[in-house]
Design a protein around this nucleic acid. Structure first.
Length: 450
DNA sequence: AACCGACTCAACCGCTAGTTT
DNA sequence: AAAACTAGCGGTTGAGTCGGT
């Protein structure tokens, strides 16, 4: 296919004008012409380029009529956009591009076209493929999706946005950033029901007030019809249902069992991996920033009654970007849209703030900060090893501590000999460990068994 | 050498939003 | 206002390739 040389492509075309999905009755063009599907040949490319040169882009449905191509307009547009248009950059992504993609994805989510707009010469399809591949690799290896600098930057930008106030001064983190780095699963997203009672540990759930603070302004009635939501919007919801390791049983095994890390040493490890409440900014909340960990425990014995509500409501935290102006004052849009936009809501780079649509009700960071405040004001048995600037608020200190520790842990995490590194987690997750030695994952070196 | 599983990526499909009639 | 059309987006699929056994 893509590596098929041009000669072979033309051969295919010559030998098989009627083959290769050509006779799909459902693909008739104008005048009942059967449209071709499948790989493009060089001659088809030439025809398309010729057409575009003469008529310009757009009006793709006319291509077939005027160029003689037996392709639907859609196919032509795609071929042009992804392969034929000038200034396309081919080849592997550079490190800078990869960093930018991660950064963009942290803020935009699966908005491939928007991301492509920030990566000259790259196509949405290319970025999408890259990201999906990256997701697979990193998930298999038990690595966080986003590099630490992206997490830190995102958090800092968010914090900055908050401090600068204004209606757009809130969350710039995308749901995927939240979900994949905080691993806040929703039953919508991860088949929570099937996992109830499965997880071997029962993380303390954050005070629901953290969430309610995120949700303030939301009409509770928006959350009442979950069943309809899930069925009606099944396809769209999958967008955020990035399959995690063990997602067959869901995220059940995504983390090594909490029970196994109860001694002092392993407690630290657990904290490093954010085994506490993902919003727990106490011991090592930082780790929840980029280390995936599941909230979808479903262990009812420890889950607060509100937990389910949390899980239900989380996807509804963002409004459609068109609603930015009314973010702080208007009731939320219908849940369906809320969920969809939560999943897909664009969170443009701060440097590209023109379309910044961050709501005041910021969600993740608010929850983080709220929890930080809560924890700071309560007795903190890890209290204040961090520098306590006289001006810093407890919240700031907690966040600062979070970020610092997070960076440290990232180093540990990427340190293959570190007992706090990925190795330990992978060893607790054989499936991940078994296949973790590829590409950007570091090989597992040793095991750590607490 | 053959097999097999993982990976990559081009292309397709379904859907939605915007525009035109 | 509604229907039809068009463009674009994001998810998914499947064929080819690669690397390990």
């Amino acid at each position: 296919m893509r590596r098929m040389n041009n000669e072979n492509e033309d051969e295919v075309l010559a030998n098989d004008q009627s083959g290769l999905q050509l006779n799909d009755e459902s693909n008739e063009g104008h005048g009942g012409v059967v449209l071709k599907k499948g790989p493009w040949t060089t001659s088809e490319d030439a025809m398309l380029v010729d057409y575009v040169n003469k008529h310009g882009e757009g009006n793709w449905n006319a291509v077939q009529k005027y160029s003689g191509l037996l392709r639907c307009g859609k196919s032509c547009r795609l071929r042009w956009a992804n392969h034929l248009r000038p200034n396309l950059k081919k080849g592997a992504f550079t490190a800078e591009e990869e960093r930018l993609i991660a950064e963009l994805h942290a803020k935009m989510g699966n908005k491939w076209a928007r991301m492509a707009a920030h990566l000259p010469g790259r196509t949405d399809n290319e970025i999408k493929n890259y990201w999906n591949t990256r997701i697979k690799r990193r998930q298999r290896a038990g690595l966080p999706l986003y590099p630490p600098e992206v997490c830190v930057q995102a958090v800092q930008e968010n914090q900055h946005g908050r401090s600068s106030g204004g209606i757009n001064g809130g969350n710039k983190l995308h749901h995927d950033f939240v979900q994949k780095n905080y691993e806040i699963h929703s039953p919508i997203f991860d088949g929570w029901n099937g996992s109830q009672g499965i997880l071997p540990y029962a993380p303390e759930l954050p005070d629901i007030s953290a969430y309610t603070s995120m949700l303030k302004g939301f009409d509770s009635s928006d959350y009442c019809n979950f069943e309809q939501l899930t069925s009606a919007n099944h396809k769209r919801l999958r967008e955020s249902t990035t399959p995690f390791i063990g997602s067959g049983g869901m995220s059940t095994n995504w983390f090594y069992p909490f029970d196994q890390i109860r001694d002092n040493t392993s407690d630290k490890i657990a904290q490093s991996f954010g085994m506490q409440s993902p919003f727990d900014l106490g011991p090592s909340p930082h780790s929840s920033i980029c280390y995936s960990h599941s909230l979808s425990n479903g262990n009812s014995s420890t889950s607060k009654p509100t937990y389910e509500a949390v899980k239900f409501e989380l996807p509804s935290l963002q409004y459609p970007e068109t609603d930015v102006g009314s973010w702080s004052t208007s009731p939320p849009p219908p849940l369906l849209e809320s969920v969809d936009d939560f999943i897909q809501s664009p969170m443009p780079l701060s440097a590209l703030d023109s379309d910044c649509s961050s709501p005041q009700n910021s969600g993740l960071l608010d929850a983080l900060l709220y929890q930080a405040r809560t924890l700071s004001s309560s007795k903190n048995h890890y209290s204040d090893k961090s520098s306590n600037s006289s001006t810093a608020t407890p919240c700031d200190r907690a966040l600062s501590s979070t970020l610092n520790k997070y960076e440290t842990d990232w180093d540990d995490y990427t340190d293959t000999v570190s007992p706090f590194g990925a190795t330990s987690m992978l060893n607790e997750y054989p499936a991940a460990s078994a296949s973790a030695n590829s590409l950007d994952e570091r090989p597992t070196v040793n095991s750590f068994n607490g």
